[in-house]
């Protein structure tokens, strides 16, 4: 199942605009914990769940790896495949930070994604509700869900 924040909907417009402006195929905006805030372009809810779980895991790894190698966390990751590319970046907010995963093909480019990412920062900041409303709505079993999803993805029972 997809988990939403309690203030579901506020992030839809900024993310939709980011997708349209940067001509992305898919994008998802999530908490660093892996909880989805908004998504555009996904066909199945399971895919969103998977993408969020993996993105959160990758971000956590990159932060630690950056700390080890560079003395500070890595905050963006770009991978160029044959036909599609992904960009996973942090979106700073007033009180914390979110993650955005962007998937794009030749209609866009890394430069374009990075350009419109700056606009996304501003639009998210403008649209985000106050801290007490926007914090992730951690369900009792969220941690368990996340771990289960990751275990499934990596083929562990």
């Amino acid at each position: 199942m997809i988990r939403h924040s309690v203030t579901i909907g506020w992030a839809d417009a900024p993310l939709k605009r980011f997708v349209d402006d940067a001509r992305l195929e898919l994008a998802v905006l999530l908490h660093t914990s892996g909880q989805v805030l908004a998504q555009v372009g996904f066909q199945r809810s399971l895919d969103v769940q998977t993408a969020c779980a993996l993105s959160a895991a990758i971000n956590a790894s990159a932060e630690h790896l950056g700390g080890m190698l560079d003395g500070k966390p890595f905050t963006g990751l770009h991978y160029a495949g044959k036909a599609r590319q992904i960009y996973l970046g942090q979106v700073p907010t007033k009180d914390s930070r979110l993650l955005v995963l962007a998937v794009f093909d030749t209609e866009s480019s890394l430069g374009i994604v990075q350009l419109y990412l700056k606009e996304l920062y501003a639009n998210v900041a403008a649209a985000a509700p106050a801290l007490e409303d926007s914090s992730p709505a951690l369900a009792e079993n969220f941690e368990a869900d996340l771990n289960r999803n990751l275990a499934q993805l990596f083929g562990r029972p």
């Binding site: 160029a80 030749t106 866009s108 480019s109 890394l110 430069g111 374009i112 350009l115």
Partner: peptide
């Protein structure tokens, strides 16, 4: 051309080189 990232350049102060690079490369593509 493919990723729209600046490799080298020279610009007057105030010119948003990242925007010109990304969007012009995109237009060219």
């Amino acid at each position: 051309e493919e990723d729209g990232i600046v490799i080298d350049g020279s610009a007057q102060v105030g010119v948003d080189t990242a925007a010109f690079a990304a969007l012009t490369a995109s237009l060219y593509r």
